[in-house]
């Protein structure tokens, strides 16, 4: 329906979210507005407690804002969740310890089977969607050999890849990732970044990605959104680096230029925190 202008996949406008009762109210988000274009990779970066994860939970429909609206493909996040438009990758892999990797990855298909009809109403949201074969996805990220093992037998990196495949197996139109690589060592992290970029390049889903790492944000994103406390969007840095972005790019001077740009914005975020 929209040929020239692609609609925003995630639209956050004037959102406020606070926790607790007066007098000890913690403001997690204060008048936050944000638009994530369909098919783009957007990172949220900022100091701890700046509300990045809260914003992600609002987009996933896990919580509701106090003021303002959140829209995912034009509808409330809960409706989007009911149509299985959303894939969530939490900080920990959150795999079920009694199911094999393959069964962990396929269980989301078994639940909420009415989602197919609800999703059809949204029409084509960007990409043609052949059903993703979970075994194929697992093989693609190097988990083919461990598909029938239990999560306890996996390393941290393998478990996190299984969590990503679980989310991607549903072919979500919006992928929400909450610091998915923060618990991994540097090399594992870089290899998983590459694998995620490959899969994303193919599936062309919209990604909202929360991270603490400047390098990770710059490497992955089309746009890096810098947030500061208490719960504000301070800056939005478009990353004009070509894709595909190989690890070699990490030494590129342009890469460092973007890193510095994000770092300067983050410093403002920190000083804003100090002032508060």
């Amino acid at each position: 329906m929209d040929g020239a202008v692609r609609a925003a996949a995630i639209e956050v406008s004037g959102v406020r979210k606070a926790y607790g009762e007066p007098p000890s109210v913690t403001v997690a988000l204060d008048d936050v507005s944000l638009a994530v274009a369909a098919g783009s990779f957007v990172s949220l970066i900022g100091p701890s407690g700046c509300g990045k994860s809260t914003l992600l939970r609002l987009a996933a429909g896990l919580e509701a804002p106090d003021h303002g609206t959140v829209r995912v493909h034009g509808v409330a996040p809960r409706e989007a969740a009911a149509a299985k438009l959303i894939g969530l990758v939490p900080q920990s892999p959150a795999l079920l310890p009694w199911l094999s990797v393959l069964k962990n990855v396929t269980l989301p298909r078994k639940v909420n089977q009415g989602a197919g009809k609800r999703r059809a109403r949204f029409g084509d949201l960007g990409a043609g969607r052949p059903p993703a074969d979970p075994m194929d996805l697992l093989r693609r990220v190097g988990l083919g050999d461990v598909a029938h093992k239990l999560p306890a037998e996996l390393s941290g990196g393998m478990a996190q890849r299984a969590a990503i495949v679980r989310a991607l197996g549903l072919r979500p139109d919006v992928l929400l990732m909450d610091e998915p690589f923060s618990a991994l060592d540097e090399l594992t992290r870089e290899s998983l970044q590459g694998q995620l970029l490959d899969l994303w390049g193919e599936l062309k889903t919209t990604v909202l990605f929360v991270t603490h790492s400047i390098a990770e944000a710059v490497r992955m994103s089309d746009v890096v959104v810098v947030m500061g406390s208490p719960g504000r969007v301070l800056d939005s840095v478009p990353i004009g680096l070509p894709r595909p972005r190989d690890p070699g790019l990490l030494g590129d001077p342009r890469f460092h230029g973007y890193e510095d740009q994000v770092r300067v914005s983050l410093r403002h975020a920190w000083s804003a925190t100090d002032d508060a």
Binding site: R57, A60, G61, L62, R78, A81, A82, K84, I86, G87, L88, P90, Q91, S92, A94, L95, L96, W98, L107, P108, K110, V111, N112, A115, R166, A167, L170, L176
Partner: peptide
């Protein structure tokens, strides 16, 4: 059930019965 697992299945709108059968009872 750890909250992050519940959130994953909440984000695909699993019903209470599904959460009970697939997550809580095991």
């Amino acid at each position: 059930v750890p909250p992050q697992i519940l959130q994953v299945y909440q984000s695909i709108a699993a019903s209470r019965l599904e959460v009970l059968a697939y997550l809580r009872v095991p």
